[in-house]
Every structure is written in C-alpha cells, then in structure tokens.
Amino acid sequence: MSGKRATIYDVATAAGVAIKTVSRVVNKESGVSERTRQRVEEVIVRLDYRPNRDARSLASAQSYFLALLFDEDQPDLVPEVQRGMIAACREGGHHLIAEAIDIRSPNLASSVQALLATSRPDGVLMVPPVADSPELLALLVAANVRHARISAVALPGAHLFLPLEDADAAAAITACLIGNGHRRIACIRCDDGTQAGALRYEGFGRAMAAAGLPIEYTMVESGDGSFSSGMLAASVLINQPAPPTAIFASSDEMALGVLSAANRMRIAVPDQLSVCGFGDTLASRNVWPSLATVGQPVADMAQHAARWLLRAEVDCPSFAPVVSARDTIAAIRFATVEAR
C-alpha cells in the first residue's frame, strides 16, 4: 500500500471530467460517450480507484450483506449452511453476517429489529429453531425484508420455504434397516417440543407400515434429543425379554447415547444390535463404528436460498434426504432361516 487511496475527485481531475461523469461510469449508467467512458476507466485502473461500497450501497439501497439467523444453543446445521451461503455470496461480492441469537430471550424481537435497522441485510436466512418462530417471521414480513426459511415446518407467509423432509428422511433410514432384514425395530422419539420430532416418528411409522410391520408399544421410547436421554432409552429397550435387533434414534446425539449404552452392556454393534441416527452430524463420522444416519443436503439448500435472496435467477430443485449407511447397520442373517 503506497499513500492514500484514490478518491472520486482524483479520478475526475485526472480524466478532466465532472464527478457525476465518474459516478455514471462506475455505476454503468447511460449518458456518457464511449470515448469519455474509456478515458475514465483507464484512469480508474491507473489510480487503482475503488468506489466506496458504503456510498454505493446508500445510492443503490443495497447493503451487500446477507444475514443468517440461528440459535446459539442448537448450531448443528450451521457450518454446512454457512458453507452454502458463503459460496453464493462470493458469486456477487456479498458478505455474510452470522447472527447467533438466543431463541428464549425476551428481547429476541428487539435484537433482530436492531440487526435489520443497523445492518440492513439484503436478505435473511433462518434455520431451525429460529426459522420456526412465528414472531420472527411476522417481524421480517412487516419489515419487508426478503427472507427464506429452511425448516421441517411450513409457516404461512414466508417469502421462500425450503422444506427439510424429516418424515421422508426417517422413512428412508428405517427402510434401510428393514432392507437389512430387521423386523423388531425400536424407535427413540425426539420429544423436544418441536414438530420435527413428530415428523421423524411419522416417517418411521410410515416405513414400518409399508413393510407390514407392527409397532409394539415396548419398542418405542422417548428422549429429548440429548446424548443422555438416548442412553437411558436404550437401556430400557435393551433390558427387556425380547429386545430389538435394531434401534432408530431420531437424533444423532441420542444414537451416540445408544452406542454408549450398548458398549456398557457389552452388546456388540452392529453384530448384536444395529443402530442408526438422524442428522448426519460431524460426531456421527467421528465414532467407531461410524454411525449410520440420514441427513439433508443443507449446504446445497442454503446456497440455493442465498442465491434466491440475492435475486439471482434460480429454478427450484427438490432436495432429497441422503442416507449414510456406514458401519452400525448389519444384515440379520438368521431372520431368513425358516422352517420349510
């Protein structure tokens, strides 16, 4: 860096034109002759003049920021979502504001209002559980801020809704267990007060029904999504006269709790018990045996949503859940041995 940065005045003086002419060239407006335009552009390159984005954004009413709203206590999806948003931001010279909020805070609405007022993001993306707050949605609609939601739950009035197909995803991973010959399949529901938990149980039930398998009440336990609740539920499920051969835990953390409980009870996974989770979190890859799970292509979804927020031309693809079978599912071999 040598000396001061060139200003619009320096460019105007060097090119022998009015400031307004430089501005017209920079903003690609009409009313400038081709010769003048070329001369101004040469000077811009020579002086390394870079128009101030603050001034430009005032004029064009664009801030060149997108914002991501997420809950600071439930950031599982956040790294992947950010990866997708950043990719879209880079396409158009935008930057990303990561706004971690406390969904339980009584000042939630005013803090988001302050964000909108001071940073004026060109668009806002929300992920669960923030995305499922009707209060925040109403606030964004009222403020007329372009916004998108990634969520398992539909809410009326949102500008763009990219559905997380939790029921389909749960059905897909349950079908994977059934395909491996399992019949006594237990489910640990996620009763964390969100609709997503109910959707996952619905998907489990759908896959079982499609295979003509009954859901026995001894095969269903509840957890709150946490590791310890998964451990507890697993010990109840395993410690019964006819334990399940497979457990679908409707969050990865609970599934890791199941692995831990099985390990403690000296039950070999997957030889004696198959286990699968939900969410495809980082932790599911960092255990041995690596956890079978099902995820959603959230990075792609976030990139799509960010492009849409930036008003790029985008068609709306559908995003299918991705089953990662990994190492905690084994086929039932004895199940096929039947009396002839």
Partner: peptide, 10 residues
C-alpha cells in the same frame, strides 16, 4: 427511525 449502519459508518 433507526440509523443505517452504512450511513452511520460514512
């Protein structure tokens, strides 16, 4: 009225 971060920045 709430001040705009960009304008405030300027």
């Amino acid at each position: 009225y709430a001040p705009n971060a960009s304008a405030r920045g300027l």
